[in-house]
Design a protein around this nucleic acid. Structure first.
Lengths: 251, 251
DNA sequence: GCAAAAGTGTTGAATTTACACCCATGT
DNA sequence: ACATGGGTGTAAATTCAACACTTTTGC
């Protein structure tokens, strides 16, 4: 039992290292993908890992995550709540602090979830480290013994991030964070289909998203980049919460 | 920019203190209430604060939260996912790490949310420190200038916890965590009414919860403790996710 | 013309809502 | 008897799901 004086006396307790790890998701070629970096040093040397790093003494947790995201992808993060435009959505995911999660010392990692539009560069990141977009189906789908292991507890963090993204696009406008600044209803539908791994009815989807006030705002132009009849271009509207929500089929 | 060698070298970065803080919610006399403890030493001496304490070197974050909860309330916590019976639901809420949130040093707090049934003791806790159940309406409702301030950033953490509870009972069976082991449909309805601050139609509510498979299981007995016709007693069923969700009125 | 994707209309089913009504107890 | 809360029935309104059908482009 801790006595009363020591309850809030920081010097009385051993220090922890605090890091941020990032689950950066995007949709590429109809697949939900996560950003991985290759570890160059032990432990887990040569393993793929989530991008991340130490929180600096003078920065907040969100700031650290935003900085790491910019270092890895060049994206500027938008705090949750505001309209999601070019750049990425960034929110705190959960914190992982199992005593043995890092073999060297006690490390508590505050994981963040970032949703990014499809980036043109196949190998993102400003430095020369190995980095890749890996389809989450390959990382999480097969039995644990059959898939390439990730460093630390990053497979667990990734699974939590993917689950959060899958459920959050149901009742929020977050799916637009996967799209470029201007996009068509069909492109948005393909985002839902990739994240959920389902096929949606294009007609009902169109009615649903255009009929939800504040979800999409027409930006005036049209495009035929998907083929077929020209499609109206939209930008993300100010709405953040969808009521009624999008319905995920075959629940 | 951090060079590659230092990215995962814990000794290269200054230490943080890591704590857990608890948002413990219950429903008392038709009101949603939070557990507060009075601080006995600076900083914020004499202020009310959320219960919490340091994470020990050899325990996980959830373990630390569970231990603190037991110390403060005597409740045994049930990990999320499993059936919620006697005892409390406990889940991680979010992590707060603003550089100046504690004036003494860098403290990162992993906040947890606990939902507890109404406890018989008005002053919970095993030790003699001041503790009280405070209606959240009094803590968060009035303008910030008019309400009693909480220590540190605990008003923010509390608000986040309350918001999480309010939204989570929509699509999960978590409201049963506020109820004793056996309860009536009317008692469960009063939980929803207190947490959301609304009035629900008793007839439709009854049909909804009894019609959702796995939400409630009849435990055989009846009670007249609420007056009127004897009501059937139920226990929480195994279901954790509600489909379709409970609908919060006047959204 | 034909394929492909965008978008509109329509219809039956399922769900929600509002409220009338009955039930079983305590006083 | 009557108040109180428990519980069922029902009908209108709304929402959802499935799919026929038209529109507008590229080739």
């Amino acid at each position: 039992m801790i006595d009363r004086m020591s309850r809030y006396d920081p010097s009385a307790f051993p220090p922890f290292a605090v890091t941020v790890d990032l689950v950066v998701l995007t949709v590429r070629e109809h697949e939900l993908c996560a950003l991985l970096v290759r570890r160059g040093e032990p432990p887990f040397q040569g393993y793929w890992a989530l991008p991340g790093g130490f929180v600096r003494p003078d920065e907040g947790l969100g700031e650290a995550a935003s900085r790491e995201l910019a270092e890895e992808t060049g994206l500027r993060a938008h705090a949750s709540g505001g309209p999601v435009m070019a750049g990425a959505h960034l929110e705190q995911l959960a914190t992982y602090g199992h005593p043995q999660r890092d073999p060297r010392m006690r490390v508590v990692s505050v994981a963040h979830l970032a949703l990014a539009p499809d980036l043109p560069t196949p190998k993102p990141g400003g430095d020369a480290r190995g980095a890749r977009w890996a389809p989450v189906g390959e990382l999480l789908g097969p039995a644990e013994a059959d898939r390439e292991p990730l460093a630390f507890d990053h497979a667990l963090i990734l699974a939590d991030g993917v689950e959060r993204a899958r459920s959050k696009i149901e009742y929020s406008s977050l799916a637009t964070a996967f799209c470029p600044e201007e996009f068509t209803v069909g492109e948005l539908r393909r985002v839902y289909e990739a994240v959920w791994g389902v096929v949606l009815d294009p007609r009902n989807f169109h009615r649903k998203v255009t009929g939800t006030p504040g979800f999409l705002v027409p930006s005036g132009g049209t495009t035929t980049r998907q083929g077929g009849r020209p499609a109206q271009l939209f930008a993300a509207g100010g709405a953040t919460v969808l009521n009624p929500p999008m319905l995920r089929p075959e629940s």
